[in-house]
Nucleic acid binder design. Structure first.
Length: 420
RNA sequence: GUGGCUGUAGCUCAGGGGUAGAGCCCCGGUUUGUGGUUCCGGUUGUCGCGGGUUCAAAUCCCGUCAGCCACCCCA
């Protein structure tokens, strides 16, 4: 018996329907990024493992698809784009006028257990502004992420953007006498507060000389705690985006490298999932590339957002329209008389040169079968080529109306029928 | 890494000790130049794999593998 192959665990086949859905999401990502004046870039899929160690420490290696290449170099399939971006931006720092507005759509790999919304292979949209310290750059990214969601068909009933500021936490902790060396630990405690029993949190805070009510009081102070956040908020409000925004200081995001405003796009339906996240990371380009450059950015993965689209009525309708278009053609040729193969080929070429999507049968078949094939191919029109050539029959499959047209006037007639 | 659920036709699934079923899909005909919603007929399975109990296992037991889901983690 032949050996049966499957995809590797956590890897994905994209059959045409899934590929259409993926490309639809890509199209929206790209369209909105361009609307904000961002330009697309790309980096290598394989990088030295040290690039990721440098950013995230040795623990990261357990989550990497890494191996020794034939030159015995320690390499990894990229798990994220930010270190690559930092390297690229630093390498040609002087060639680009600041600020840089860069986006990328790429494939990433993490050695994790496969589950809903998470695989070992996924696509991610990355959007970053480099060389700009103003909080208005942070606001621009947040606005972009909101517009992305709106373009996908989501409304304020579906999502919120939750914003916070790590700087505000650092100031708070410093005022309370937490030493510099303990600040990372402190932020970890805050980050995990929602999922940790109160007693445990009290105990951990106690070790740092703090109490839970100190923390709760600070979270309650909201935007008052951060001048940067106030600026971000008033800017988003001026754009008419206030209804999408929620200040929530309890969002810290696990990453150690964030240095200012941080935010998450959050599904407020049943899932309560984070679908995108990002923030300011002013030190990272210096750490990776040796050139100090302020930066902020965010990323959105394809898996969670696609799940959410399918679960939400309006976004799913938009996706289905895109899928139907991707899987269809404009014209399917019906060859009623096999002697007219050659004439049919000429017609096909004429229509294709006018930009239409056209298919024709490869083998002779009954008329009925050919119409069935046209229907199943998602064609809008069927053109019957038979003994009457150069007279042709053009049939609209949707309402089954048909008309006859001379081949010399075909392109115009077809264009008219397709646009009506 | 931990736990739960599920593995039966290409797909969705039913059956629950006596060597397999439905619907969909697919193919052919009904219809020798007109399709989607007619009707008729047809193909398809080592019932995930290995072992055990039994006269007899798809069915019960043990193991294993795979998939899904949740936890941990999440750049």
């Amino acid at each position: 018996m032949a050996q049966r192959f499957q995809t590797l665990k956590g890897f994905r086949d994209f059959f045409p329907a899934e590929c259409a859905a993926r490309n639809y999401v890509f199209d929206v990502w790209r369209r909105i990024a361009r609307r904000y004046g961002f330009v697309e870039y790309e980096g290598p899929i394989l990088e030295p493992t040290d690039l990721y160690r440098k950013k995230s420490g040795d623990e990261i290696v357990g989550q990497l698809f890494c191996f020794q290449d034939k030159g015995d170099r320690d390499v990894s399939m990229r798990p994220e784009l930010t270190p690559t971006l930092a390297r690229m931006a630093a390498a040609k720092e002087r060639e680009f006028k600041k600020p840089l507005r860069w986006f990328s759509i790429g494939q990433f790999f993490r050695y994790e257990k496969h589950q809903k919304g998470r695989g070992r292979e996924f696509y991610q949209f990355n959007c970053d502004i480099l060389g700009e310290t103003s909080p208005l750059a942070d606001a621009e990214l947040m606005a972009l992420s909101i517009d992305l969601m709106r373009e996908l068909g989501f409304t304020k009933e579906d999502f919120r953007i939750r914003v916070s500021d790590r700087n505000a936490w650092v100031s708070f902790a410093t005022d309370k006498g937490v030493s510099d060396g303990q600040i990372t630990d402190f932020l970890q405690i805050v980050d995990k507060m929602e999922r940790t029993p109160k007693e445990k949190t009290e105990e951990l805070l106690g070790n740092l000389g703090l109490t839970l009510s100190d923390i709760e009081g600070f979270i309650a102070s909201g935007a008052e705690a951060s001048p940067a956040l106030k600026e971000v908020l008033s800017n988003l409000e001026a754009r008419g985006f206030a209804e999408y925004v929620e200040v929530d200081l309890s969002i810290v995001r696990g990453l150690a490298y964030y240095t200012g405003a941080v935010f998450e796009i959050f599904d407020i339906g049943k899932g309560m999932r984070a679908v995108a996240g990002g923030g300011r990371y002013d030190q990272l380009v210096g750490l990776i590339g040796g050139v100090d450059m302020a930066a902020c950015g965010f990323a959105m993965g394809d898996m969670v957002i696609t799940d959410l689209i399918r679960e939400t009525e309006r976004p799913n309708q938009l996706l289905e329209v895109a899928e139907a278009f991707a899987s269809g053609v404009d014209v399917s040729i019906v060859i009623a008389d096999p002697e007219k193969q050659g004439e049919a080929a000429g017609v096909v070429q004429q229509l294709r040169e006018s930009g239409l999507r056209v298919i024709a049968p490869f083998s002779p078949a009954k008329i009925g079968k050919q119409f069935q094939a046209a229907e199943q191919a998602g064609a809008k029109l069927a053109i019957v080529i038979g003994g009457e050539y150069p007279e042709l029959t053009v049939k609209r499959l949707e309402d089954r109306t048909e008309s006859t047209v001379d081949v010399s006037g075909l392109s115009e007639a077809v264009a008219g029928l397709l646009s009506s």
